[in-house]
Nucleic acid binder design. Structure first.
Length: 507
RNA sequence: GCCCCGUUCGUCUAGCCCGGUCUAGGACACCUCUCUUUCAAGGAGGAAACAGGGGUUCAAAUCCCCUACGGGGUACCA
């Protein structure tokens, strides 16, 4: 099995593209096949600098790797269509010679005039087809001598000659047989006047030349597949198998997810942060939002595909094992950010602590926090990981560690302090100062004993201590907090509290 | 407009191909309870769907047709 992912470098890859790349990857890996990255940069006017590098970086981050591509080379190089320009022209002319294509000389204005005329006659989307081509300027209507003359002196395009009255059928691996009638098809441009191919020609030629056996792409390509089928026939080439994946839809149901949605939907639509080189505009990415690549890939896999069992959390390896086109959904799938977060959370909880520390590190550094010894850092993260769906949640959950409470406490919190506990605070301070070892277990024992002696419910004691030490009402186990804070920091916070608030006198 | 593809809980989906086992299963989100020093996490439970109409059949979520709705396409863009 040979598959390819063929994005056009017109900007960042969006997550729908990532999913297409993922499905191709899973299939290639599962079957021990080959996976090709091909850059479809045939539209020179839409070229965006940095987009190709972004695509490679994003897929690499996701763990999606290739066997061939512009970044690694391979037997079918080059892998940028702009660098294969000459190949397409040659094949386009061959198609003319075979009677499956023709030259057309119509100017933009002439095409526009044709459309206007037909629209005025009530046609919504005029086509260049079997009916209209007969009165346009092309090698089918012009005398051969004039055609030759124009070819030498004028820009021209090559258009496919769509047969007049035929059913074009193909088998889609996900949808079954799909039928179009050739009268619905128009004579698509194959070779543009700048000498570049259009997608239709380039993809067919390259897929053939590169030995692609399965074309797996988004459903938006379904309507142009009959053109591709005709091209394979015109060339006399064996067709690959086709599979058109259901689209990723916006959560509000307003159509397919697109690059242009940027951050407008309230969640990232890109794998990585992207800064538009022209406008400077920045769009957030999953990586920067604190997702693990495992989480993103797992969620994306489940959007439009379902594994045989009821298991939902998968590693990339497990996805490769479980994936199959037969279980891909036909209908479009709405993106659900909440579920994406939940899946990510599951991966966060499973991640080995060293790798979690690695993943959190950039966020830690970005906050300007000083590095901690690995053991202490890991201990801290253990307190927070179960409270986090994305990486920044972890920093939030251990805020107490790097931000001592602002004193005096605001009255809504100060009101919750237990006076009896406050009164006994100096005594507790003294007791804790001699406590060894300084561990959550011994701290728990000491504090529980102390609460008992005071005759107070444990909850009141702990809430008061929590407020004093962290300034927050909720969070990880207080014993763990004390342990990770350490004796000296804990004592400092208690002392500072006493300084600011004073010890209430018993009346 | 035309063409193509689709339609099971709010969302992702199982079941559909090979009709009965479906009083339609799971997950996210939501609600209740539980565990707990708190917040999470965990555990238990709840509410929640076969788009509509016709057929075929002893029997239809499952097969066929129509309608409605949704999506995609309709460029010298991919």
């Amino acid at each position: 099995m040979v598959v390819r992912f063929a994005p056009s470098p017109t900007g960042p890859l969006h997550i729908g593209g990532v999913r297409t790349a993922l499905y191709n990857f899973l299939l290639a890996k599962k079957t021990g096949g080959r996976y090709i990255l091909r850059i479809e940069d045939t539209d020179q006017t839409r070229y965006v600098p940095g987009a190709e590098a972004y695509i490679v970086e994003a897929l690499t981050w996701c763990g999606i790797t290739f066997d061939e591509g512009p970044h690694i080379g391979g037997p079918h190089a080059p892998y940028r269509q702009s660098e294969r320009k000459a190949i397409y022209a040659q094949y386009a002319h061959e198609l003319v010679a075979r009677g499956w294509a023709y030259y057309a000389f119509d100017t933009e204005e002439e095409l526009e005039a044709m459309r206007q005329r037909l629209q005025a006659a009530g046609m919504v989307a005029p086509q260049y087809n079997a009916y209209t081509r007969s009165y346009m300027k092309n090698s089918l209507t012009l005398p051969p001598a004039e055609v030759q003359a124009r070819l030498r002196s004028e820009p021209y395009v090559i258009r496919i000659l769509v047969p007049r009255n035929r059913e074009v059928r193909f088998y889609d691996e996900i949808r079954g047989w799909v039928t179009f009638h050739s009268r619905e098809l128009d004579d698509k441009v194959l070779l543009k006047s700048d000498g570049m191919p259009t997608y239709h020609l380039a993809n067919v030629v390259d897929d053939h030349l590169m030995g692609v056996t399965h074309v797996i792409r988004g459903e938006e390509w379904l309507p142009s597949t009959p053109i591709h089928v005709l091209l394979y026939e015109g060339f006399g080439w064996e067709m690959p198998r086709f599979a058109h994946l259901p689209l990723l839809l916006r959560p509000d149901g307003g159509g397919k997810l697109s690059k242009r949605d940027g951050d407008a939907l309230g969640f990232p639509v890109f794998p990585l942060r992207w800064q538009d080189p022209f406008t400077g505009e920045i769009a957030n990415g999953y990586r920067e939002a604190g997702f693990l690549p495992e989480g993103v890939v797992n969620y994306l896999a489940l959007l439009g595909w379902h594994p045989p069992g009821e298991k939902e959390i998968f590693t990339l390896e497990e996805l490769i094992e479980a994936f199959s086109l037969k279980r891909v959904q036909k209908a479009g799938a709405r993106f659900d950010y909440e579920k994406a977060r939940w899946i990510n959370q599951q991966h966060l909880r499973r991640l080995p602590i060293e790798r979690l520390a690695q993943a959190v590190q950039p966020f830690w550094a970005q906050k300007g926090l000083p590095p901690l010894p690995p053991e202490r850092f890991q201990k801290l993260l253990e307190l927070a990981r179960e409270r986090a769906a994305v990486l920044p949640d972890i920093l939030e959950a251990v805020r107490f560690f790097y931000t001592p409470p602002a004193l005096p406490l605001p009255s809504n919190l100060a009101d919750r302090l237990n006076p009896t506990v406050l009164e006994a605070l100096p005594e507790l301070l003294a007791a804790l100062s001699t406590l060894t070892p300084w561990l959550a277990s011994s701290l728990e024992e000491a504090i529980k004993g102390w609460a008992k002696r005071l005759g107070l419910p444990l909850g009141k004691v702990l809430l008061t201590l929590r407020l004093i030490l962290t300034g927050e009402e909720a969070g990880p186990s207080l014993y763990q907090i004390l342990e990770v804070l350490g004796l000296s920091e804990s004592r400092q916070r208690l002392e500072r509290f006493l300084e600011v608030h004073g010890v209430p006198k018993r009346v």
